[in-house]
């Protein structure tokens, strides 16, 4: 474990917590893409499938973190699609998730480390996570704005994988560890946030709201 990965995971936890708090406190999921949250839930379930296959006692924080990610993302989807369904902005959350899931699944079968079920699921989860935020960014471009709290959520969510890139550089240099698939997908994922990061740093930090087109 290194400082970059630690802060990456903390940033990811913060993002999940910020979104849950926003929906729970405002009792509304306006401005939140339900599809992105569904894709994240699929990512966690397919990536941490080992938790279900051979249940191991919660002897280390990693197992606990995996369970937190899975339960929090499923609970977030429950809030969006059931509890606060009336506030779900289905009209603007219109990016076709199939256009993300099918290519990720196809690519996972073509480019992977080992052609076995668990490894293919892990690879699918990595590719899907790289593009899972697109419906959320698409929704913001359609509505033309993002609530400040949603901007904070996106900043934490984007920072998590950006910090992981620093972690991979660290591990390459000190542990000669390389996980090419995760690195390439992580770089693509972080690049997708660049436009948002620019808006966040130039606007939200100054107390302004993000309004598109910028």
């Amino acid at each position: 474990m290194n400082i970059f990965r630690l802060f990456g995971d903390l940033s990811h936890l913060a993002a999940i917590a910020i979104l849950l708090l926003k929906i729970w406190k405002t009792r509304s999921c306006a401005g939140v893409s339900g599809k992105t949250q569904l894709l994240f839930a699929v990512c966690f379930i397919t990536r941490y499938i080992d938790l279900f296959l051979h249940f191991v006692s919660l002897y280390n924080t990693e197992k606990v973190m995996k369970l937190i990610y899975i339960s929090a993302s499923v609970f977030t989807c429950y809030l969006i699609f059931f509890k606060f369904k009336a506030t779900y902005d289905g009209n603007h959350d219109s990016m076709r998730a199939e256009f993300l899931i099918v290519p990720a699944a196809g690519l996972a079968c073509l480019i992977n480390t080992k052609f076995d079920a668990i490894e293919i699921l892990w690879t699918f989860s990595i590719y899907l996570e790289a593009v899972a935020i697109l419906p959320q960014l698409f929704l913001i471009s359609k509505t033309g704005e993002a609530e400040t709290i949603t901007s904070h959520y996106l900043f934490a969510q984007g920072s998590y994988r950006a910090l992981y890139i620093l972690n991979w550089i660290y591990r390459y240099h000190y542990e000669s560890h390389v996980d090419t698939i995760a690195i390439v997908a992580g770089v693509v994922q972080t690049i997708l946030y660049c436009d948002f990061f620019y808006l966040y740093i130039t606007k939200v930090v100054k107390g302004q709201k993000i309004v598109l087109p910028a």
Binding site: Y69, Y164, N167
Partner: peptide
């Protein structure tokens, strides 16, 4: 550089 056998990250 060796690729990771098991994926040891979240």
């Amino acid at each position: 550089k060796k690729p990771s056998a098991a994926h040891d990250e979240l």
